[in-house]
Amino acid sequence: MKDAAGELRAGLWTAAGAFVLWGLMPLYWHLLKAVPSLQIVAHRILWSTLLLVAWLAWKRGGGWLRATLAQPRLAWMLALSALLIGCNWALYIWAVNAGHVIETSLGYFINPLLNVVIGVLFLRERLSTPQWASVAMAAAGVLWLTFHYGSFPWIALGLALSFALYGLVRKLAAVESIPGLGVESLYLLLPGLALLLWGETHGQGGFFAGWGAGLVALLVVGGALTALPLIGFAYAVRRVPLSVVGVMQYIAPTLQFLLGVFFFQEAFDRDRAIGFAFIWAALAVFAFDGWRRSRRRALAPVA
């Protein structure tokens, strides 16, 4: 029991650390605003791939890639998930450095509810009445932002959709989290290197000369900041109930939202507040329904 309690505590702290790091990442990417967004993404791919492949080789030996891809259909499924997560990274970094931090937080607030919709459409899952109410309230919030704020929240929906579809593919792919991420990173490595070479030869790069040692170091460390929270998250979900992780995931968009309002001082007027209020209410109903269901299962007599 003592060991189980220690594992749970370690998992909780690791999950909290991963979500806090994700939530504070806009500050890090803001330090790199002098670097073109696609160059940041390319460096993020390069250095995170080197870190992940080295970690997997150390933990599992040189045959980890062959063993992972030996499973049927896994190669093309991970290629698709790599494309989705690459698009998500590119949109997110561009949005942060273009002054849309609040809208990126909206995307990750919407994401859990979009996961529910995808579960209904693709996995034939059934929703409870509170879950349908949550989806309806979130949709009302998005429509309000579209018609009253004056622009369609395409950044938020693009981030939410790309990450939700990524989650769907990874759910269907029979592979562990870290080896799967390693294969995805290798798929992205060649396009990433091509982007880096194109940037260096067309005046948009400066890694070897121009950006300075400070920016170069930040780009390299950015790879570690990409991989470490994902490794930590994979560690945590094996030790912490998913219902708890589901609630903790709101740490990241909450921190992003607070940074957008108070640090980056982005506009947050009455119309935007009303749209967010619909979505926060939807999340509250969704979280309460999930908590009530998990409590019922825990209290149900064992047959």
Rank of each mutant, 00 (worst) to 15 (best):
Y28G: 09
G86C: 14
Y28S: 07
L83A: 15
V96H: 01
G86A: 14
W22S: 11
L12N: 05
L114T: 07
R44A: 08
L38V: 06
Q131T: 04
Y108N: 09
V20C: 12
L31D: 09
W89E: 00
W22A: 15
L46P: 01
T14H: 14
A133E: 05
A10N: 11
L127V: 09
A70C: 02
L38P: 00
L127E: 00
W29D: 11
W13Q: 07
S37F: 03
A10G: 14
V101M: 10
I93P: 03
A75Q: 10
I93Y: 12
E103L: 06
G63E: 14
F122H: 03
H30W: 10
E125C: 11
A34R: 10
W89Q: 02
W29Q: 10
S128H: 11
P130W: 06
T49W: 01
M137Y: 07
N115K: 07
G62K: 08
N111W: 02
A10R: 14
S105T: 09
A54N: 01
I45V: 14
A138M: 12
T129E: 08
L84Q: 06
G86Q: 02
A98Q: 14
A79C: 11
L51N: 02
L127G: 02
L56H: 11
F109T: 02
I110R: 13
G86L: 00
N115S: 05
R73N: 04
N115L: 11
F109L: 09
H43Q: 12
L127K: 13
I102Q: 02
L91D: 01
I45T: 00
A75S: 00
I85V: 14
F109A: 00
W132P: 02
Y108Q: 03
L50A: 08
G107L: 10
W64M: 07
V53C: 02
A34D: 12
G61Y: 11
K33C: 08
W58E: 00
N111Q: 08
M137G: 01
G61A: 07
L123T: 01
P36S: 04
W76L: 13
A98H: 14
Y108H: 12
L56M: 15
V120N: 02
W13K: 06
W94F: 13
P72I: 12
L12R: 01
W132L: 13
A16G: 05
L12K: 05
V101N: 08
Y108T: 05
F19N: 03
V53R: 00
Q39K: 04
L80Y: 05
L80K: 09
R124N: 13
A70P: 11
R124G: 09
M77V: 08
I118K: 00
N111H: 06
A16T: 15
Q131E: 08
W76R: 11
C87N: 12
G86P: 05
A136Y: 06
N88I: 02
A16K: 03
G107D: 09
S105F: 09
S37Y: 12
L50K: 04
W47H: 01
